[in-house]
């Protein structure tokens, strides 16, 4: 799959198949009988191939001190149609890229049952000490879906559709300009380094959206407060290259 749907194996494409520790395995797909070569890469110490044929497996060894990884390659060989139906003639120097941002992140998400009232300003500021903490999750990426919040109380399984979640993340990345991709259900507010960067509700955003951000320091703090009533709830936040 690509962001535009199923990949049809006809145009050049670098596909990440596996990550094991710092070893990344890719397959370079493209029109049969043609070749590719790598012009530039970032975030890798070394690679098993610098050029090859399509369907070749490329193994790359990650350099751990950079968040951005990228591979820029050039196609050499037969004609093809790209993903928009554009005809690329044979031997045209067509460039294709793999890009991914992998900042060092640590997230802790805490959940509190909450009645059906609209969240107060205090709650949207993450002041939830008066609420009953029932569930805590830690992760190195923030992506979580709920089909109602389930927890245990006095040895009994409980579930509720109305709850507040407060996610706090430490994000380590090179200073620069990025996009913050968010997908949040319910009524939510997002703070980046104690500054509000999003304050809205699900009805305004039915799909993930981007907020351009400038990060001035290597260490950053993101806090997301979200109040949900519908049972089905999502929190998703990641930094993307701009």
């Amino acid at each position: 799959m690509t962001e535009w749907g199923p990949y049809d194996f006809r145009y050049p494409h670098i596909h990440l198949t596996d990550i094991k520790d710092s070893i990344y395995t890719f397959v370079v797909f493209g029109p049969a009988g043609s070749e590719w070569n790598i012009e530039q890469s970032r975030g890798f110490k070394s690679m098993s191939l610098q050029q090859g044929n399509y369907q070749d497996t490329l193994i790359a060894f990650r350099q751990l001190n950079t968040a951005e990884i990228s591979i820029n390659a050039v196609h050499k060989g037969s004609f093809f149609f790209d993903h928009t139906g554009n005809f690329i003639p044979a031997n045209d120097s067509f460039k294709f890229t793999f890009k991914r941002l992998e900042p060092f992140e640590n997230w802790i998400t805490k959940c509190y049952p909450f009645d059906d009232h609209f969240p107060t300003e205090n709650i949207l500021q993450g002041k939830v000490d008066h609420l009953n903490l029932v569930q805590t999750y830690t992760s190195n990426r923030l992506h979580r879906d709920w089909w109602s919040l389930q927890y245990e109380k006095d040895g009994q399984k409980q579930k509720t559709n109305s709850f507040i979640s407060v996610s706090q993340g430490e994000v380590e990345i090179e200073p620069g300009n990025y996009n913050l991709e968010l997908y949040l259900s319910g009524r939510s507010r997002v703070y980046l380094n104690d500054r509000i960067v999003y304050d809205g509700s699900e009805s305004e955003q039915s799909k993930p959206f981007l907020i351009p951000v400038e990060l001035l320091h290597k260490n950053n703090k993101i806090v997301i407060v979200s109040a949900n009533k519908a049972g089905i709830a999502s929190i998703h936040c990641r930094l993307l290259l701009r």
């Binding site: 799959m1 962001e3 749907g5 990440l16 928009t84 139906g85 997908y183 799909k207």
Partner: peptide, 19 residues
């Protein structure tokens, strides 16, 4: 009638996005 409208997909390698 190929290569007409298609929405962007937000699900990515590690996670699907419910939208």
């Amino acid at each position: 009638f190929s290569y007409n409208y298609r929405p962007k997909l937000y699900s990515y390698r590690e996670h699907e996005i419910l939208s």
